[in-house]
Design a protein around this nucleic acid. Structure first.
Length: 110
DNA sequence: AGATTGACTAACC
DNA sequence: AGGTTAGCCAATC
């Protein structure tokens, strides 16, 4: 069993930002990184990858900068990706095949 | 403390 | 157009 480490300030910031995304909207690693004043979206992925707050954080609303679904579920769960896509679509997110309508569903960070 | 990775992105070939 | 390289930041080993 993995011991849950205490989230760092950086991670907490990521979780907070992601949890701020309302239903029907999404965001990209790049955008989140940008809001967090980070130059590396990888660091964001790192935080989400650890995701100590599992379903509490809508990490499924976070996609690649291209609108493509990130690998948060991994290739082993490709089918789940479609399920998430369908779920997001029901939330109001416009999907185009394997991509998301960033210009339409991108969350406004004000 | 140093080296590697990691759910990325963008640029280069 | 598609594959590869490089850059980036933070966490983990």
């Amino acid at each position: 069993m993995d011991k849950e480490r205490k989230p760092t300030v950086f991670e907490s910031r990521v979780y907070e930002a992601v949890s701020q995304i309302p239903s029907g909207k999404i965001s990209t690693y790049r955008d989140i990184a940008r809001v967090l004043s980070i130059a590396s979206p990888r660091a964001v992925g790192q935080a989400l990858r650890r995701n100590p707050f599992a379903p509490q954080v809508p990490c499924h609303r976070v996609v690649c900068a291209d609108g493509k679904i990130g690998g948060f579920f991994g290739e082993s769960a490709g089918a789940l990706i479609e399920a998430k896509k369908r779920m997001l679509r029901e939330e109001g997110v416009i999907f185009h095949e394997d991509r998301v309508d960033l210009q339409r569903c991108l969350h406004s960070w004000h």
